[in-house]
Design a protein around this nucleic acid. Structure first.
Lengths: 144, 144
DNA sequence: CCAATTGTGGGGAAAAGTGGTGAATTTTCC
DNA sequence: GGAAAATTCACCACTTTTCCCCACAATTGG
């Protein structure tokens, strides 16, 4: 499972290193392959291939004859991209996802259980502020 | 279960020894791996891996497509870091946690049941003073 | 009192992160 | 259809960080 945050940078070609500490938790089944999609917030979600396949299996159980469900599937799959690590452990993020997540130079990489999220640090900060619950309250709920 | 307090020092690289007397209480399942996280007070909480996994299991049951629940996951995992003991039984504390806990040179290491807390000794002293109630009063309330 | 363990410090090799070059392929345009 | 331009992608190079190892004083325990 992925956890923790890392501040990295994206280069002029749109490449991002996958942090070594996250890479250690990627199964060998993933074959250094990652799937990228639009996040549900203003960020990019990155799944190792094996985790993606599990997620895809869930999508497959949806009913494509229900308007809501097919719309969800289409919206999601529209911007899926696949890439394999280069020799420096980086993946190339498609321009359209970079724009969607409003990413500039600095990126915040967040380990979030079965996926890795990529944020513009400023946007992530704003996102956290919007919450009613403080860190203390959330911690109290989970850690008790 | 962890108990007792120890005054140690953090070195210039941000490493802290885990006291031998606490280490004896760590399960072999933990694989010498510890998770560090922002404490709810001005301190750092350290969990052996196996203890931490209990919390993570709770997070795993949440639905990351529900805005409230993914927010919860992000807020918590943001402040988590992982490390394994080196050959001298030390772990490396990330700079961001050191700053959060306002740690300088001396640290107070506190065994606190299922976790280990790391404090700046001065801050811990202040924390104890801050309460209006005496030890006796608090004990009466909590233990009844 | 001696041997083993523990806590602290630091050097140096290896890994990690970042940036860039240039060949190969694809696309564009005349 | 073919040359020029643009894109892709496999490498190469450099700097910084990480982490593995050695060293040593202090403490503990028999």
């Amino acid at each position: 499972m992925f956890r923790g945050q890392f501040t990295y940078s994206i280069d002029s070609k749109g490449r991002i290193s996958i942090p070594a500490k996250l890479r250690r938790h990627v199964s060998a089944e993933a074959n250094d392959t990652y799937m990228m999609i639009r996040g549900t917030s203003t960020c990019i979600d990155i799944y190792p291939l094996n985790e993606w396949l599990l997620f895809e299996a869930k999508l497959n159980k949806l009913n494509p004859f229900k308007p809501d469900e097919i719309r969800f599937i289409r919206t999601l799959l529209q911007h899926v991209a696949e890439d394999t690590l280069d020799s420096q452990s980086r993946i190339l993020i498609p321009q359209i996802l970079i724009e969607y997540a409003k990413i500039e130079k600095e990126v915040l990489i967040l380990g979030a259980l079965n996926k890795i999220e990529v944020w513009n640090p400023k946007i992530f900060e704003e996102y956290l502020k919007q919450s009613d619950e403080t860190y203390e309250q959330i911690a109290a709920k989970v850690m008790s």
